[in-house]
């Protein structure tokens, strides 16, 4: 019978938690605090932090303004990033987005009305958060499931060719800025 060596048990979370925190200000002046691990999920924010030379010492004194994202979306984004900050890096689901299972927690988070979802995906695109982008795309793609073509047209608001032509004509007929 082997005897287990006596070693101190260290909780992984304890090792990980001693976070460097950053402050983000949304377009409508809401302030959010986000940990370093979480903010790294956003390539845009992390590039900004790196370029601004923010460190553990000065991070909280230098809030980062994000003028393209409102408070509501930022709240969702911060929640998402904090939730997934310790996830292992996954391959980009560029071609086979259907192959992953959307976790229930995330499905709940993204159960918002379509206008909000629209704004959220634009914010996600701006902040370059790959995983949230994959998840949003999945939720939007799932809207097409088991739908007839006419339902697809309505769900995605796709104009007919005639409507597109009419729009184009009216756009070209309307006077320009000088006119």
């Amino acid at each position: 019978m082997s005897v287990e060596p006596e070693v101190p048990i260290v909780q992984v979370e304890e090792v990980r938690e001693n976070p460097v925190l950053y402050k983000i200000i949304s377009s409508d002046n809401h302030v959010f605090t986000i940990s370093e691990h979480a903010v790294k999920l956003s390539k845009t924010l992390w590039d900004l932090i790196t370029n601004l030379g923010l460190t553990a010492e000065n991070a909280l004194d230098n809030p980062i303004p994000v003028e393209n994202v409102n408070g509501k979306n930022m709240e969702t984004i911060v929640q998402f990033c904090e939730r997934h900050k310790y996830d292992e890096e996954e391959p980009e689901y560029t071609n086979y987005i259907r192959e992953f299972v959307l976790p229930e927690w995330d499905r709940q988070l993204l159960s918002i009305d379509n206008e909000e979802l629209f704004q959220l995906i634009l914010a996600t695109n701006y902040l370059d958060i790959q995983k949230l982008m994959d998840y949003c795309c999945r939720v939007i793609g799932d809207m097409a499931k088991d739908k007839t073509p006419e339902e697809l047209r309505i769900i995605y608001g796709i104009p007919t060719d005639a409507e597109d032509d009419a729009l184009e004509r009216s756009a070209s007929d309307s006077p320009g800025p000088s006119g």
């Binding site: 939007i140 769900i155 608001g157």
Partner: peptide, 9 residues
Amino acid sequence: MSFFLLLHL
């Protein structure tokens, strides 16, 4: 049925 303006993305 609510709609999502896909082509505006």
